[in-house]
Design a protein around this nucleic acid. Sequence first.
DNA 1: CCTTTCAGTGAACGTGCGTACACTGAAACT
DNA 2: AGTTTCAGTGTACGCACGTTCACTGAAAGG
Lengths: 236, 236
Amino acid sequence: MTPNTVHTRALISVPPIPDTLSPVTSQPTPPAVGSRSDKKERTRRAILDAALGLTEDTGLAGLSLRQVAKEVGIVPTAFYRHFDSIDQLGLALVEESFSSLRAMIRDVRQGSPSLGQIVDRSVAVLVEHVRADRAHFGFIAREQSGGSAVVRDAVRRQFELFERELATDLARLPMDHWSSADLQILSNLIVGAMITTSESILHAEARDLTEIRHRARSQLMMMIVGALNWKSRQPD
Amino acid sequence: MTPNTVHTRALISVPPIPDTLSPVTSQPTPPAVGSRSDKKERTRRAILDAALGLTEDTGLAGLSLRQVAKEVGIVPTAFYRHFDSIDQLGLALVEESFSSLRAMIRDVRQGSPSLGQIVDRSVAVLVEHVRADRAHFGFIAREQSGGSAVVRDAVRRQFELFERELATDLARLPMDHWSSADLQILSNLIVGAMITTSESILHAEARDLTEIRHRARSQLMMMIVGALNWKSRQPD
DNA sequence: CCTTTCAGTGAACGTGCGTACACTGAAACT
DNA sequence: AGTTTCAGTGTACGCACGTTCACTGAAAGG
């Protein structure tokens, strides 16, 4: 291990012909476009990815600057060129992770006429997204109750935001007469179930997925049907 | 659990005044009852309590043997007289915490005739127990996705057990015709909501409690009413 | 009374950590 | 062409950690 030291410079100097013309445009290190700020951005990404991977085992609390640096292939102190602290790294990951989550709900929104279809589609999209982006969903699930107060709070604030968004979506169902407070309550319940389901997906074998899908569908159906019936029978 | 035999003799030897006499018989270290194994048990408890307290900030992952030892007032190496590792400490805390949770559901079970009363009583008992035993509930919530794999798995296994218990309880509601699989699904949903509510309670100010209570009641009602209506309309 | 047991001691070790500091060399700017 | 910027380097520091080992002294037990 650690065959590095100076060879990074060697890698850079491999195609040293840049500004003049090169007839064959194929690049052996393909994303070699740009320099300076591009390179910095690439390192930043590498740090985020390394952190996302390393956190899977230990949580953000058990993540050390030196581990990340080694994984990325830089010296520990170079980390500070990109983030002030591990906490700042964590906040960036929170941001990223919730972008992924928002992309998911955008997927659900399009289409979906009947109520039954909304349920089916929601579950399908959830399962698909969680499996396609395990790292980010796992990160959220973990750091929601994780060791860093500032990251934990950030996750919770994002969830509250997400919950409010879902509440306005729910208003488009035949629940027009509901108060926004009650929509919030329902939304809170649904988001909670979504988190639980996500966690199930995350540590499930592939063969368990149909069962999880079935369960999620049933639960979502229960919640919606329950909300409708409960409100209609006890007007407030 | 090795409830040893010898401590009766210790009780007899409580007044150990023999050699020199002191006119004032008051002992400045009053809980001096028992010796050896009693003292060991007391130290063990102190370790568990210290760990429970220290984990509040950092999670079990961020807990060090030396911290605990300092808090308890023993030298680091003495820790090993009581636990093989921090993980073993964690497992003991899992055990303890779920005892607390089971005590809770035992409280719910007694009484509770009508459905509405079950809901009210359940929520009341939940809020009360979580507030009375913040440390244990917080520990469960944290370590459910915590850093130690063995502790995390233990928590999840306990939750599955708890879920199954709740499912058999639910069978006593007018849901006799439900399959046990469907009861499990409902139970899973309810337990998830319970966890979410517990977390809300844990980091809520006292004045928010009535709102949380209201929300929990509404959600539990939605779930039960929803389950009943959904199943009756789509027999499977 | 004499021996055994064992909870707690205290010094010492190797390791990984965050962070400081002075540095280098290529890209960017003037 | 000359200067500035700045991502990444390398050394070195003090600290907290888990674990080892030989120990002590009082309680338990024959």
